[in-house]
Design a protein around this nucleic acid. Structure first.
Lengths: 114, 114
DNA sequence: TTGTTAAATAACCACTGGGTTAAATGATGA
DNA sequence: TCATCATTTAACCCAGTGGTTATTTAACAA
């Protein structure tokens, strides 16, 4: 399977190292070496993480001498945001109910459902 | 790895079958059999997808006779939404620039950078 | 008690993913 | 041209995933 863009994006985001890389890139582009430095894993491992991010369209790689600077491209996250938003009513409904319930508790209402 | 909640949530969402199940559950709870019916895969396979969704906290399973109705719980998506929102300026910046560029093209401005 | 039905679990298989080290590539600069 | 530096690719290992069919569990109904 794994034909759809959204699945590719979600699985790219499923790895904490890759999310940390994206967060780092919010502060500006970086070379593969710079991106490797904060982690306890090898450069080839980071290089493959970057490939996954690139295939998901989450980073762009340019070229500057023997360095290959990596830049953040957050546009695929718009799709993720849209997808998640379809569920907002549901989780917000749940939060609202929880809030109401806690408010009832606060009032010491003996009829509050437990 | 895979210790953090967000990774668990993202990888649960990375599978299209699981996302389809969540979408189906927006219309109301369903038994495992009902949830299996629309797919071309076996019930044990769906059962395991449900286990993944349950461990990610995205569904809740109750009990009713020999059925185990499954209900949507979208609350973990709030965390996903928060995470994605940190990147909104980035992708929106990109969209704005693209829009401006297209507007330049529309005007037929010969100085528009191509 | 026995049979039926819903679902989960077991055992298996093929494939993927994330890590490693070692070797290959590609641009720079002496 | 040749050595160096940054990065990628290759080859490998092990754990995890998604599917299958067969079996087990659990609740109901006769």
């Amino acid at each position: 399977m794994m034909i759809d863009r959204l699945s590719v994006t979600f699985s790219a985001l499923a790895d904490p190292t890759r999310r940390a890389i994206l967060q780092r890139l919010m502060e500006g582009e970086g070379s593969v070496g710079e991106l490797t430095e904060p982690f306890a894993i090898s450069m080839p491992a980071i290089s493959r993480h970057l490939k996954v991010l690139e295939q998901a369209g989450l980073v762009v790689r340019t070229r500057s001498a023997q360095w290959r600077p990596v830049q953040l491209n957050a546009t695929p996250l718009a799709e993720v945001s849209d997808w998640v938003e379809r569920y907002r009513r549901h989780w917000q409904g749940a939060f609202d109910r929880m809030e109401a319930y806690l408010a009832e508790l606060q009032k010491g209402d003996p009829d509050a459902k437990h």
